[in-house]
Design a protein around this nucleic acid. Structure first.
Lengths: 248, 248
DNA sequence: CGCAGATTTGATATTGTTCAATCCTAGTGG
DNA sequence: CCACTAGGATTGAACAATATCAAATCTGCG
């Protein structure tokens, strides 16, 4: 359950941070020395809940997680999807009350990082503070892009845009290549993420398949026509602020 | 154009930060000593544009600003509205390329804070880094709430929710009281912020007036029935993370 | 084989959009 | 003091995108 000093679970975090910034050896070492309690969680299990006041952050080591909020009438809004290397609740380091929930999507391995250790890390390495801050700012940039989708893009564009985004995010940390990536997200989830009904998501996916843009089954997405898909939703990856810009 | 050492334009920033955190005398003093070039801008004037790489941040001293992004087909998404004390483009300190634009809504007085000075400030005062980080995290929390609105709330709830939010934000920095606040936002702007057409915004506003919930004219919003308005949109101010929680 | 969860389909209902006027109001110049 | 103007607000009618509901159908798995 506790990480041995020589396992490399924190390398996922390093890889992620290196996709959005540059790390020095010293910084890498400092991250590796973070204490982390590792745990395997079942699918669809809450990690932190709306209203909680957590004293640790959750680093995803394997599998997928998502953030969401429930409102009246059984409605749900999903804010983000997360994969290995992400710390989806990093904001809890500075916002003490959760205003939404975090849960696993698939079975997942996660590491818990005590706030205390993270605060200590930021005290000793202001340059790491800057990088973690940057990470949360990119998080916000992605929110803005989703807002643009829900406010001003139609269903087709929204879904296409999300696919482009997820592919690049996965590719940036080595979890995707050749326009193929895991996508263990149900159509209901997609709807709740994009402000659509599952029925409509289904119909749009069929259209995307019919136009030869994507293949999607058994949890694998293949983007068959990247350029056309990108053009169809006016995708511009600037907002991901990736250090090593991925293929366009 | 340059601020004299004894004018108090930076007090707006102090007041804002004190609405979300606690400042020490030393920190207040450090903020006051920031160099700031003050300028008066006309309404509807861009301050920073999508794609820019700014070397300064913009502090609003008076008037309103908003952040937005233009996409194809003349569509526009507004992400936020800002008032005195806000630094709407604080994220540019860590994200070097703007992925959206910032503009004045009304005539506005703004102060430009060089990135260099802000970085220097954060180096000397890690506790201020924490507070500025927190501010950007609250920004993101508001985005999440707007996402929830656009994804899962109907037009009435969205508008009501925005009114509750703006009132509390203004009240927190002393710009509103007695359920009355300035609201120099056109119906077109409201639509572009909430993912609605101006026509529909207009109709919903009429309904809100008809139900005796609000009064809105000549740029002034009066919330006539706070409790009912809040209930109608399930407003919960937690996400604003205000230090001194406002009246509920 | 037989669920349980996920996807797909069809029919119908709604919410909100679009387009095109018209009205209103504060500010302007005479 | 008033006609004039421009931006904003309001209205009506037709339309479109998407939701809802309910019933199959499919798929991986024990």
């Amino acid at each position: 359950m506790s990480s041995a000093p020589d396992d490399h679970s924190l390398d996922m975090l390093i890889r992620k941070l290196e996709s959005i910034a540059t790390l020095s050896d010293e910084e890498r070492q400092a991250i590796r020395s973070l204490p982390a309690k590792t745990r395997v969680l079942q699918p669809r299990q809450d990690i932190v809940r709306d209203g909680d006041k957590p004293s640790q952050c959750c680093l995803i080591l394997d599998g997928w997680a998502y953030r969401y909020k429930l409102i009246g009438g059984g409605r749900r809004q999903i804010f983000s999807f997360h994969v290995a290397g992400d710390i989806p609740d990093l904001q809890s380091l500075r916002l003490h009350t959760m205003d939404h929930s975090l849960a696993t999507l698939t079975q997942a391995t996660v590491a818990f990082l005590p706030h205390e250790s993270l605060r200590d890390l930021t005290t000793r390495f202001p340059s790491l503070t800057a990088i973690l801050w940057r990470d949360t700012l990119i998080d916000a940039a992605v929110f803005r892009e989703w807002m643009t989708g829900m406010g001003r893009r139609d269903a087709f564009e929204r879904i296409a845009h999300l696919f482009c985004e997820l592919y690049l995010k996965l590719q940036a940390v080595g979890l995707a290549q050749s326009y193929r990536c895991p996508l263990p997200i149900t159509q209901v989830d997609l709807g709740d993420a994009l402000g659509l009904s599952n029925v409509h998501v289904n119909r749009v996916l069929q259209e995307m398949r019919g136009r030869g843009l994507i293949t999607l089954h058994s949890g694998t997405l293949v983007i068959e026509a990247w350029d056309e898909l990108m053009r169809a939703c006016e995708f511009d990856p600037t907002y991901l602020h990736l250090e090593k810009r991925a293929a366009a």
